[in-house]
Amino acid sequence: MFRTVSARSIHAPEGTLSSRVRRALGRVRVPGPAPLAGAALLCLLIGLLFLAFQVRAIFSAQLQQEYVGLVLEAVERADAARAAAFSLQNLSASDTQHQALYREARIELAGRLAALHALVASSPMSAPSVPSAVLSPSAALGEASAALDSTYNWWRTERDRTSADVRERILSVSHTLIALSATVFGVLITALGMYAKRNRQLLGISNEFEQASLHDPMTGLPNRRKLFAALEEAANALAGRVGDVRGSTRIAVLYIDLDGFKRVNDTHGHRIGDEFLIAVSRRFRQTVRGGDMVARIGGDEFALLVREFSSDSELAAIAQRIITCVAETDAQMGLSIVRASIGIASFPDRCHDYWRLVAAADETMYTVKRNGKNNYAFASAPASA
Protein backbone atom coordinates (compact mmCIF):
# COMPACT_ATOMS: atom_id res chain seq x y z
CA MET A 1 0.00 0.00 0.00
CA PHE A 2 1.18 3.52 -0.72
CA ARG A 3 1.36 6.05 2.07
CA THR A 4 -0.95 9.04 1.81
CA VAL A 5 0.92 12.29 2.33
CA SER A 6 -0.93 14.77 4.51
CA ALA A 7 -1.98 17.82 2.52
CA ARG A 8 -0.73 21.24 3.47
CA SER A 9 -0.98 24.68 2.01
CA ILE A 10 1.68 25.29 -0.60
CA HIS A 11 2.16 28.83 -1.87
CA ALA A 12 3.77 28.58 -5.30
CA PRO A 13 6.18 31.41 -6.03
CA GLU A 14 5.96 33.46 -9.21
CA GLY A 15 7.30 31.60 -12.22
CA THR A 16 6.10 28.11 -11.22
CA LEU A 17 3.89 25.96 -13.42
CA SER A 18 0.66 27.11 -11.72
CA SER A 19 1.61 30.73 -12.36
CA ARG A 20 2.29 29.96 -16.00
CA VAL A 21 -1.06 28.20 -16.30
CA ARG A 22 -2.81 31.28 -14.88
CA ARG A 23 -1.05 33.42 -17.44
CA ALA A 24 -2.03 30.91 -20.13
CA LEU A 25 -5.67 31.22 -19.08
CA GLY A 26 -5.35 34.97 -19.51
CA ARG A 27 -4.20 34.39 -23.08
CA VAL A 28 -7.24 32.29 -23.96
CA ARG A 29 -9.12 35.43 -24.88
CA VAL A 30 -8.06 35.37 -28.52
CA PRO A 31 -10.12 37.73 -30.68
CA GLY A 32 -12.11 35.61 -33.08
CA PRO A 33 -12.81 36.30 -36.75
CA ALA A 34 -16.49 37.11 -36.08
CA PRO A 35 -16.05 40.94 -35.96
CA LEU A 36 -13.91 40.82 -39.10
CA ALA A 37 -16.45 38.61 -40.84
CA GLY A 38 -19.26 40.98 -39.83
CA ALA A 39 -17.41 44.02 -41.16
CA ALA A 40 -16.56 42.16 -44.38
CA LEU A 41 -20.17 41.08 -44.81
CA LEU A 42 -21.33 44.67 -44.35
CA CYS A 43 -18.82 45.84 -46.96
CA LEU A 44 -20.00 43.12 -49.34
CA LEU A 45 -23.64 44.08 -48.87
CA ILE A 46 -22.86 47.74 -49.51
CA GLY A 47 -20.81 46.78 -52.56
CA LEU A 48 -23.58 44.54 -53.90
CA LEU A 49 -26.17 47.28 -53.40
CA PHE A 50 -23.90 49.71 -55.24
CA LEU A 51 -23.46 47.18 -58.05
CA ALA A 52 -27.22 46.66 -58.29
CA PHE A 53 -27.75 50.42 -58.51
CA GLN A 54 -25.07 50.79 -61.17
CA VAL A 55 -26.35 47.87 -63.25
CA ARG A 56 -29.87 49.30 -63.08
CA ALA A 57 -28.54 52.69 -64.15
CA ILE A 58 -26.59 51.08 -67.03
CA PHE A 59 -29.73 49.33 -68.31
CA SER A 60 -31.66 52.57 -68.04
CA ALA A 61 -28.93 54.45 -69.91
CA GLN A 62 -28.88 51.77 -72.63
CA LEU A 63 -32.65 52.12 -73.06
CA GLN A 64 -32.16 55.87 -73.36
CA GLN A 65 -29.46 55.28 -75.96
CA GLU A 66 -31.81 53.09 -77.96
CA TYR A 67 -34.53 55.75 -77.83
CA VAL A 68 -32.06 58.47 -78.81
CA GLY A 69 -31.09 56.28 -81.77
CA LEU A 70 -34.75 56.07 -82.84
CA VAL A 71 -35.13 59.86 -82.61
CA LEU A 72 -31.94 60.49 -84.60
CA GLU A 73 -33.14 58.04 -87.29
CA ALA A 74 -36.37 60.04 -87.50
CA VAL A 75 -34.31 63.25 -87.74
CA GLU A 76 -32.29 61.76 -90.60
CA ARG A 77 -35.46 60.85 -92.49
CA ALA A 78 -36.84 64.34 -91.94
CA ASP A 79 -33.49 65.80 -93.06
CA ALA A 80 -33.70 63.85 -96.32
CA ALA A 81 -37.21 65.27 -96.90
CA ARG A 82 -35.89 68.76 -96.06
CA ALA A 83 -33.05 68.42 -98.60
CA ALA A 84 -35.56 67.41 -101.30
CA ALA A 85 -37.75 70.40 -100.45
CA PHE A 86 -34.82 72.80 -100.60
CA SER A 87 -33.71 71.40 -103.97
CA LEU A 88 -37.15 72.10 -105.46
CA GLN A 89 -37.79 75.43 -103.75
CA ASN A 90 -35.95 77.70 -106.24
CA LEU A 91 -37.44 76.24 -109.43
CA SER A 92 -39.51 78.39 -111.79
CA ALA A 93 -43.00 79.09 -110.59
CA SER A 94 -44.31 78.44 -114.15
CA ASP A 95 -43.06 74.91 -114.10
CA THR A 96 -46.20 73.14 -112.98
CA GLN A 97 -44.61 69.75 -112.75
CA HIS A 98 -41.82 70.97 -110.47
CA GLN A 99 -44.31 72.91 -108.36
CA ALA A 100 -46.21 69.72 -107.82
CA LEU A 101 -43.04 67.96 -106.82
CA TYR A 102 -42.23 70.79 -104.38
CA ARG A 103 -45.68 70.51 -102.76
CA GLU A 104 -45.19 66.76 -102.42
CA ALA A 105 -41.76 67.37 -100.86
CA ARG A 106 -43.28 69.82 -98.36
CA ILE A 107 -46.02 67.36 -97.50
CA GLU A 108 -43.36 64.65 -97.01
CA LEU A 109 -41.32 66.98 -94.79
CA ALA A 110 -44.39 67.89 -92.73
CA GLY A 111 -45.18 64.19 -92.25
CA ARG A 112 -41.62 63.46 -91.17
CA LEU A 113 -41.68 66.36 -88.75
CA ALA A 114 -45.04 65.18 -87.35
CA ALA A 115 -43.62 61.67 -86.79
CA LEU A 116 -40.57 63.23 -85.14
CA HIS A 117 -42.84 65.40 -82.96
CA ALA A 118 -44.81 62.32 -81.82
CA LEU A 119 -41.61 60.40 -81.07
CA VAL A 120 -40.14 63.26 -79.03
CA ALA A 121 -43.41 63.72 -77.15
CA SER A 122 -43.33 60.02 -76.09
CA SER A 123 -39.70 60.23 -74.92
CA PRO A 124 -38.99 58.88 -71.38
CA MET A 125 -36.57 61.80 -71.00
CA SER A 126 -37.47 65.43 -70.62
CA ALA A 127 -36.71 66.84 -74.08
CA PRO A 128 -37.73 69.97 -76.03
CA SER A 129 -40.59 69.20 -78.40
CA VAL A 130 -40.79 70.04 -82.09
CA PRO A 131 -42.84 73.29 -82.47
CA SER A 132 -46.37 72.61 -83.71
CA ALA A 133 -46.10 75.60 -86.09
CA VAL A 134 -43.65 73.76 -88.38
CA LEU A 135 -45.76 70.64 -88.73
CA SER A 136 -47.95 72.12 -91.50
CA PRO A 137 -46.89 71.87 -95.17
CA SER A 138 -47.61 75.58 -95.49
CA ALA A 139 -45.14 76.56 -92.72
CA ALA A 140 -42.06 78.50 -93.71
CA LEU A 141 -39.34 76.15 -94.87
CA GLY A 142 -36.70 78.10 -92.95
CA GLU A 143 -38.56 77.70 -89.65
CA ALA A 144 -39.04 73.99 -90.26
CA SER A 145 -35.34 73.64 -91.10
CA ALA A 146 -34.28 75.54 -87.94
CA ALA A 147 -36.56 73.39 -85.75
CA LEU A 148 -35.11 70.25 -87.30
CA ASP A 149 -31.54 71.46 -86.71
CA SER A 150 -32.32 72.34 -83.08
CA THR A 151 -33.88 68.93 -82.47
CA TYR A 152 -30.91 67.17 -84.03
CA ASN A 153 -28.37 69.13 -81.99
CA TRP A 154 -30.19 68.42 -78.71
CA TRP A 155 -30.54 64.69 -79.30
CA ARG A 156 -26.96 64.31 -80.56
CA THR A 157 -25.75 65.93 -77.33
CA GLU A 158 -28.00 63.58 -75.37
CA ARG A 159 -26.56 60.61 -77.26
CA ASP A 160 -23.00 61.64 -76.35
CA ARG A 161 -24.00 62.21 -72.72
CA THR A 162 -25.69 58.82 -72.31
CA SER A 163 -22.77 57.06 -74.02
CA ALA A 164 -20.30 58.71 -71.64
CA ASP A 165 -22.55 57.85 -68.68
CA VAL A 166 -22.72 54.17 -69.71
CA ARG A 167 -18.93 54.00 -70.11
CA GLU A 168 -18.41 55.65 -66.71
CA ARG A 169 -20.83 53.33 -64.97
CA ILE A 170 -19.33 50.21 -66.58
CA LEU A 171 -15.89 51.38 -65.42
CA SER A 172 -17.31 51.96 -61.94
CA VAL A 173 -18.79 48.44 -61.90
CA SER A 174 -15.47 46.91 -62.91
CA HIS A 175 -13.63 48.85 -60.19
CA THR A 176 -16.23 47.78 -57.62
CA LEU A 177 -15.90 44.13 -58.64
CA ILE A 178 -12.12 44.36 -58.28
CA ALA A 179 -12.49 46.00 -54.85
CA LEU A 180 -15.00 43.36 -53.69
CA SER A 181 -12.75 40.56 -54.93
CA ALA A 182 -9.79 42.08 -53.10
CA THR A 183 -11.92 42.47 -49.97
CA VAL A 184 -13.10 38.85 -50.03
CA PHE A 185 -9.56 37.62 -50.66
CA GLY A 186 -8.14 39.84 -47.92
CA VAL A 187 -10.79 38.74 -45.43
CA LEU A 188 -10.18 35.09 -46.31
CA ILE A 189 -6.41 35.42 -45.84
CA THR A 190 -6.88 37.39 -42.60
CA ALA A 191 -9.39 34.87 -41.25
CA LEU A 192 -7.04 32.00 -42.07
CA GLY A 193 -4.21 33.85 -40.34
CA MET A 194 -6.33 34.49 -37.25
CA TYR A 195 -7.46 30.86 -37.23
CA ALA A 196 -3.85 29.66 -37.46
CA LYS A 197 -2.81 32.07 -34.70
CA ARG A 198 -5.64 30.90 -32.45
CA ASN A 199 -4.71 27.27 -33.07
CA ARG A 200 -1.07 27.97 -32.22
CA GLN A 201 -2.05 29.76 -29.01
CA LEU A 202 -4.51 27.04 -28.02
CA LEU A 203 -1.86 24.41 -28.74
CA GLY A 204 0.59 26.29 -26.53
CA ILE A 205 -2.01 26.58 -23.77
CA SER A 206 -2.85 22.89 -24.12
CA ASN A 207 0.84 22.04 -23.78
CA GLU A 208 1.08 24.19 -20.65
CA PHE A 209 -1.96 22.47 -19.13
CA GLU A 210 -0.46 19.09 -19.95
CA GLN A 211 2.82 20.24 -18.41
CA ALA A 212 0.96 21.38 -15.29
CA SER A 213 -0.93 18.08 -14.99
CA LEU A 214 2.32 16.09 -15.05
CA HIS A 215 4.51 18.30 -12.85
CA ASP A 216 4.59 19.51 -9.27
CA PRO A 217 3.40 23.16 -9.27
CA MET A 218 5.98 24.36 -6.73
CA THR A 219 9.23 22.59 -7.58
CA GLY A 220 8.58 21.94 -11.26
CA LEU A 221 9.58 18.29 -10.84
CA PRO A 222 7.51 15.50 -12.43
CA ASN A 223 4.66 14.35 -10.18
CA ARG A 224 3.45 10.87 -9.20
CA ARG A 225 1.39 10.53 -12.39
CA LYS A 226 4.37 11.24 -14.65
CA LEU A 227 6.60 8.99 -12.54
CA PHE A 228 4.34 5.96 -13.04
CA ALA A 229 3.99 6.73 -16.76
CA ALA A 230 7.79 6.85 -17.06
CA LEU A 231 8.08 3.66 -14.99
CA GLU A 232 5.75 1.79 -17.34
CA GLU A 233 7.64 3.14 -20.36
CA ALA A 234 10.97 2.04 -18.85
CA ALA A 235 9.61 -1.44 -18.08
CA ASN A 236 8.28 -1.83 -21.63
CA ALA A 237 11.60 -0.69 -23.06
CA LEU A 238 13.38 -3.15 -20.78
CA ALA A 239 11.23 -6.02 -22.03
CA GLY A 240 11.88 -4.98 -25.63
CA ARG A 241 15.65 -4.89 -25.15
CA VAL A 242 16.15 -8.25 -23.48
CA GLY A 243 13.11 -10.19 -24.65
CA ASP A 244 12.82 -11.46 -21.10
CA VAL A 245 12.18 -9.07 -18.20
CA ARG A 246 14.20 -11.35 -15.89
CA GLY A 247 17.43 -10.77 -17.84
CA SER A 248 20.51 -8.92 -16.62
CA THR A 249 19.24 -5.39 -17.44
CA ARG A 250 17.35 -3.75 -14.58
CA ILE A 251 15.48 -0.60 -13.55
CA ALA A 252 15.24 0.81 -10.04
CA VAL A 253 13.34 3.34 -7.91
CA LEU A 254 14.93 5.28 -5.04
CA TYR A 255 12.32 6.55 -2.57
CA ILE A 256 13.57 9.64 -0.70
CA ASP A 257 12.17 11.08 2.52
CA LEU A 258 13.52 14.31 4.07
CA ASP A 259 14.22 13.62 7.75
CA GLY A 260 13.50 16.60 9.99
CA PHE A 261 11.66 18.60 7.35
CA LYS A 262 8.58 18.97 9.55
CA ARG A 263 10.74 20.81 12.10
CA VAL A 264 11.69 23.32 9.39
CA ASN A 265 8.03 24.16 8.83
CA ASP A 266 7.28 24.25 12.54
CA THR A 267 10.35 26.30 13.46
CA HIS A 268 10.98 28.55 10.49
CA GLY A 269 7.58 28.59 8.78
CA HIS A 270 6.22 27.18 5.56
CA ARG A 271 7.89 29.83 3.42
CA ILE A 272 11.36 28.60 4.44
CA GLY A 273 10.15 25.02 4.00
CA ASP A 274 9.01 25.79 0.47
CA GLU A 275 12.32 27.48 -0.32
CA PHE A 276 14.16 24.40 0.93
CA LEU A 277 12.06 22.08 -1.26
CA ILE A 278 12.68 24.26 -4.32
CA ALA A 279 16.42 24.43 -3.62
CA VAL A 280 16.86 20.71 -3.00
CA SER A 281 14.78 19.89 -6.09
CA ARG A 282 17.11 22.03 -8.15
CA ARG A 283 20.10 20.10 -6.75
CA PHE A 284 18.38 16.79 -7.48
CA ARG A 285 17.92 17.76 -11.13
CA GLN A 286 21.58 18.70 -11.39
CA THR A 287 22.72 15.47 -9.71
CA VAL A 288 20.73 12.74 -11.49
CA ARG A 289 21.91 11.28 -14.79
CA GLY A 290 20.40 12.46 -18.05
CA GLY A 291 18.32 9.34 -18.61
CA ASP A 292 16.96 9.16 -15.07
CA MET A 293 14.01 11.09 -13.61
CA VAL A 294 13.43 12.54 -10.15
CA ALA A 295 9.83 13.22 -9.14
CA ARG A 296 8.11 14.79 -6.15
CA ILE A 297 5.62 12.34 -4.69
CA GLY A 298 4.17 14.87 -2.25
CA GLY A 299 5.11 16.80 0.87
CA ASP A 300 8.77 16.00 1.69
CA GLU A 301 8.93 12.76 -0.31
CA PHE A 302 10.63 12.24 -3.69
CA ALA A 303 11.32 9.31 -5.97
CA LEU A 304 14.13 8.75 -8.46
CA LEU A 305 13.59 6.43 -11.43
CA VAL A 306 16.84 4.85 -12.65
CA ARG A 307 16.08 3.52 -16.11
CA GLU A 308 19.20 1.37 -16.41
CA PHE A 309 22.06 0.39 -14.14
CA SER A 310 24.73 -2.28 -14.03
CA SER A 311 25.24 -3.04 -10.32
CA ASP A 312 24.01 -2.25 -6.82
CA SER A 313 27.16 -0.20 -6.23
CA GLU A 314 26.00 2.18 -8.97
CA LEU A 315 22.66 2.62 -7.17
CA ALA A 316 24.50 3.11 -3.87
CA ALA A 317 26.59 5.89 -5.42
CA ILE A 318 23.43 7.60 -6.69
CA ALA A 319 21.81 7.33 -3.25
CA GLN A 320 24.91 8.80 -1.60
CA ARG A 321 24.84 11.76 -4.00
CA ILE A 322 21.19 12.36 -3.10
CA ILE A 323 22.04 12.32 0.61
CA THR A 324 24.86 14.78 -0.05
CA CYS A 325 22.51 17.09 -1.99
CA VAL A 326 20.13 17.25 0.96
CA ALA A 327 22.94 17.88 3.45
CA GLU A 328 24.50 20.60 1.28
CA THR A 329 21.15 22.35 0.81
CA ASP A 330 20.56 22.19 4.57
CA ALA A 331 24.02 23.68 5.25
CA GLN A 332 23.57 26.39 2.61
CA MET A 333 20.33 27.55 4.24
CA GLY A 334 21.84 27.30 7.74
CA LEU A 335 19.19 24.93 9.09
CA SER A 336 21.23 21.97 10.43
CA ILE A 337 18.03 19.95 10.59
CA VAL A 338 17.27 18.13 7.33
CA ARG A 339 18.78 14.84 6.17
CA ALA A 340 17.57 12.07 3.83
CA SER A 341 16.50 8.45 4.20
CA ILE A 342 16.40 6.41 0.99
CA GLY A 343 14.87 3.06 0.13
CA ILE A 344 16.00 1.30 -3.06
CA ALA A 345 14.03 -1.32 -5.01
CA SER A 346 14.94 -2.77 -8.41
CA PHE A 347 13.13 -4.76 -11.09
CA PRO A 348 13.09 -7.61 -11.88
CA ASP A 349 15.52 -8.94 -9.24
CA ARG A 350 14.04 -7.40 -6.03
CA CYS A 351 10.48 -6.91 -7.37
CA HIS A 352 8.86 -9.30 -9.81
CA ASP A 353 6.17 -6.69 -10.61
CA TYR A 354 7.45 -3.27 -11.65
CA TRP A 355 4.22 -1.66 -10.39
CA ARG A 356 5.41 -2.54 -6.85
CA LEU A 357 8.74 -0.79 -7.24
CA VAL A 358 7.59 2.47 -5.61
CA ALA A 359 5.81 0.66 -2.77
CA ALA A 360 8.81 -1.59 -2.11
CA ALA A 361 11.22 1.35 -2.11
CA ASP A 362 8.85 3.24 0.22
CA GLU A 363 8.73 0.33 2.66
CA THR A 364 12.53 0.03 2.59
CA MET A 365 12.86 3.75 3.26
CA TYR A 366 10.84 3.27 6.47
CA THR A 367 13.29 0.58 7.52
CA VAL A 368 16.12 3.13 7.13
CA LYS A 369 14.21 5.67 9.23
CA ARG A 370 13.70 3.10 12.01
CA ASN A 371 17.41 2.23 11.95
CA GLY A 372 18.79 5.72 12.45
CA LYS A 373 17.88 7.74 9.31
CA ASN A 374 20.28 9.64 6.98
CA ASN A 375 21.17 6.49 5.09
CA TYR A 376 19.97 4.15 2.33
CA ALA A 377 19.07 0.48 2.09
CA PHE A 378 18.10 -2.05 -0.59
CA ALA A 379 14.78 -3.88 -0.61
CA SER A 380 15.01 -7.55 0.11
CA ALA A 381 14.50 -9.94 -2.78
CA PRO A 382 11.20 -11.86 -2.57
CA ALA A 383 11.35 -15.49 -1.50
CA SER A 384 11.39 -17.97 -4.35
CA ALA A 385 8.15 -19.80 -4.97
Rank of each mutant, 00 (worst) to 15 (best):
F2N: 15
S6H: 08
A7H: 09
A12V: 09
P13V: 03
G15C: 08
A24H: 02
G26W: 06
V30K: 05
G32K: 04
L36T: 12
G38A: 14
G47F: 10
F50I: 08
L72C: 06
E76C: 06
E76S: 14
R77A: 05
F86R: 13
Q89L: 02
N90R: 15
L91T: 13
S92L: 11
H98P: 06
H98V: 04
Y102P: 00
E104Q: 05
E108S: 15
A115P: 00
H117W: 06
S122L: 09
M125P: 06
M125R: 14
M125C: 06
P137Y: 08
P137D: 14
A139I: 02
A140T: 11
A147F: 09
L148D: 00
Y152L: 10
R156H: 03
R159V: 01
S163V: 10
E168P: 04
L171R: 08
S172N: 12
S172M: 10
H175D: 11
H175Y: 15
T176E: 07
T176Q: 14
T176C: 13
A179C: 13
T183C: 15
F185W: 14
A191E: 11
M194I: 12
R200K: 10
L202A: 06
L203Q: 12
N207Y: 09
A212Q: 05
L214H: 06
H215W: 02
N223G: 00
A230P: 00
E233I: 03
A234W: 02
A237T: 04
A239P: 01
G243C: 07
R246D: 11
G247Q: 04
T249D: 12
R250P: 00
R250C: 01
V253P: 05
L254K: 00
Y255H: 06
D257H: 12
N265K: 07
D266Q: 02
T267H: 04
G269E: 06
H270Y: 02
I272A: 11
R283D: 13
F284R: 08
F284G: 02
R289C: 11
G290S: 15
G291S: 13
D292E: 14
A295P: 03
A295Y: 03
F302Q: 01
R307W: 00
F309A: 07
F309V: 07
L315H: 01
I318M: 04
T324H: 14
D330R: 05
S336W: 04
I337Q: 11
P348G: 07
C351N: 15
R356G: 06
V358F: 04
A359Q: 07
T367Q: 14
G372E: 00
K373Y: 07
N375W: 09
Y376N: 00
A383I: 10
A383C: 08
